[in-house]
Amino acid sequence: MSDGPHRRPTRLRGTISMIAALLTARALRDAFARRRQARVTSRPLRTGEDPSQRDVAANRRAETLVAILLVGAGLFAFAFTIVYAAAGASTQLLAVTLGGALALLAAGAIVAGKALVPQEKSVEQRDVLLKEDELHEVLEIIESGGEGISRRKLLAGAAGLAGAGVLTAAVTPLASLGPDLDAIHQTPWRRGVRLVDDQGRPYTAEEVQIGSFYTALPEHADPGAFGSGLLLVKLPADRIHLPPARRDWAPEGILAYSKICPHAGCAISLYRYPTYQPTSVGPAFTCPCHYSTFSPGEGGRLMFGPAGRALPQLPLMIDAERNVRAAAPFREDIGPSWWSVRRGQS
């Protein structure tokens, strides 16, 4: 496993860096030793005493240490540029060189701040913030600006009107940001649109199997539109309990629902199909965002979670070529709720 010529430089570098680390540690200890002593010998302060103090360091070891750290920082920083310039620079090497330079700079600055420069404790007095006489002067100056004006109310009212008008004018252009709201009810689904997969291949009734779910998109329409995505599943007849008005929405047990969660607009991507019939609950769609859970056999009824509405269902039909098509547009709005959302029945 090990081959000598390659290992030697590594060991050599390891030894050098170990020695360097030891030296640094010793210098660091020495640099702080003086301060620790000073702290022990200084008299304890009693309440009410002036805590000001000033120690001049004159610490040659700290000077050496700071110099070493700064030189190290410079070398690491140059190494960064070299690594960058070399082809195939890796993110990790860049980080280690630049981060190392910054870390050494930080160490240098902190050691300098704690052991190199005079250590001072001083006392500053706080200002009184509220000075009554000055406040009065200011008030007088401001009020003197209104001397000789008699119809204050009129002027204030006029200024208020002007202000309100200008403010309204200033925010009016915001209205041009948004187009009109009609589009919010629209989806690409209308009678006859074929259901295709994400490669554009139409789904046939035979492809839709019990126990799986499929993502379907509208043929010849923008797959990126909010209302495009559908969940497509097939259920055995005994698991389908649609409201009477939706009797013919699920030909051959094939059902389609909007893929967009009516809670907060995520795409529903979890499908739970019972594998052990007697005890498990029925099939369910679950949204991965906040786990709203909907029942595909019951017209998208909410079973659990925060969604305020049922999952919108799309009526389906199967054409002569056995392709699955939309039988009608959505009866309700897809996606999250708003003030005038068209809510489903269930």
């Binding site: 309440t47 805590p51 910054l102 930080a106 160490a107 600055a109 701040g113 404790k121 001083s122 007095q125």
Partner: peptide, 27 residues
Amino acid sequence: PGRRERNVVGTPLWPAYALRSIGLLFA
């Protein structure tokens, strides 16, 4: 000790605190 509502006791900006704070920035 010595710290009152009306005063503030600590390290002046120059030089020790400035160096330490720059050290924190780099850290």
